[in-house]
Design a protein around this nucleic acid. Structure first.
Lengths: 243, 243
DNA sequence: GTCTATAAACAGATAGAC
DNA sequence: GTCTATCTGTTTATAGAC
């Protein structure tokens, strides 16, 4: 599970080596990562045969060894790709408002920023079909924490959670790095993630036939109601503590 | 993935056939289910070799075919076993207070019952190591909804969620079968489940070295704070609606 | 009921031609 | 860079002795 790659042409970690003519390939490498992310996400590492991945990608099986040194290397490349994409999304969505370099807004504004972020997260997680494989990929990794979780944590989860904590603290008057604030933010994220994971259960229980715009709105309304209620309670608690 | 079993001695679905002398076996069947639930839960269906399962159970490989008709049959037997155990737990923990036959308590009492249920759920999910395999087993199934999810939904999730909705409605004055109540209850459950799934991330972010009693208490405090805040908000909303 | 031995299919990896 | 062909190990399943 944690073996070194043989790194054939060195495209994986180098990043800058071959400047020109680097994209001489017809995009086989990228096609493999795209197809593999879906297969690995949906079926898991062991259950996804490299033959099926290569067929999905429309390339030859042996190119997996050529580019990634083997199945394990392809899997890790997928993880890095997911981390990179999510990191880019987070960089646009929340870091400008709650990141370390950002000037924190006043309380009600901070709350509004969090509400917008929740809305975007629900749209992506609950509605966007492309999020399915990504979510399952990450969930699976969380069960066996290893290198992939390290990457995801450092590049995505830690920065996003820290920024959200700063915003929550700004909104409620708490201390951004306190355990209470961290747990409150995790609770919030957990609700949304759960609506993705348990989607079939939620839909059945609510009698929903699809997860369309109306259903996503209902989820947003519920989560944002919890957010506001928690914010009110936290403000009261923090006001009392400072008196 | 959805093939019929060959049902060798008919112990699987019959249930009442062989009255006496049914436990003539040294418990090989049960040992297999126990070992397989762990392996399937931790590694997934495809990644768990029946050889390893048989070795863990201390029985011969071929008994899997004998008792369950094959690997798939063993997997389904594990799912039924999990559903049965969870159903038994739920039957003791929440159905007596929120089930259809139960007399609903007054608002503050209903809230206290929910708080106790949350506390128990956190203890089981977040602390109990035995819950790890079960949780992952279920999460995996939720990604490919099929027969197993049907069983889990009908036997466990639906009755528990319905009972929780009745308690929540009693606590806040809402309508038990309304979409708002159902979503509020899912949000609550989602928070707890997330603390199990994302446990490595939570621990890292909080700087926790273990998930002991103190850490579980912190999680409970956070979730129950959200519960109370949401209850206050819901009561206000429902009071306003009825005026 | 439990075992050994083996069949039949499939997996990932790679050598070597182009 | 991409392909075919093949090697090697592992998998599930089963036939048949006890």
């Amino acid at each position: 599970m944690a073996k070194a790659m043989k790194s054939p042409p060195g495209k994986i970690e180098g990043g800058k080596a071959q400047d020109a003519a680097a994209e001489a390939s017809g995009g086989s490498r990228e096609a493999l990562i795209r197809a593999a992310t879906i297969r690995f996400g949906e079926e898991g590492f062991a259950a996804a045969p490299i033959r099926a991945i290569a067929a999905d990608a429309g390339v030859n099986l042996s190119l997996i060894s050529y580019y990634f040194g083997g199945k394990q290397g392809l899997y890790e490349a997928c993880a890095r790709d997911i981390a990179g994409r999510l990191s880019a999304i987070a960089g646009r969505a929340i870091l400008p408002f709650g990141g370390e370099a950002a000037e924190l807004p006043p309380p009600d504004m901070a709350l509004a920023v969090i509400e917008r972020a929740i809305s975007a997260m629900v749209d992506f997680l609950v509605r966007d079909e492309a999020s399915h494989a990504v979510t399952r990929f990450i969930m699976r990794e969380l069960g066996n924490p290893g290198l992939v979780v390290d990457i995801l944590y450092d590049d995505v989860m830690h920065p996003v959670h820290t920024a959200a904590c700063r915003l929550w603290a700004a909104a409620t008057g708490g201390e951004a790095e306190s355990a209470a604030v961290k747990l409150a933010v995790f609770s919030l994220i957990g609700q949304i993630v759960y609506f993705r994971i348990a989607r079939p259960v939620v839909m059945r229980r609510l009698g929903w036939q699809e997860m369309g715009e109306a259903e996503a709105e209902a989820v947003k309304t519920a989560v944002i109601a919890n957010l506001r209620a928690a914010a009110i309670a936290a403000r009261q608690k923090n006001a009392k503590a400072n008196s």
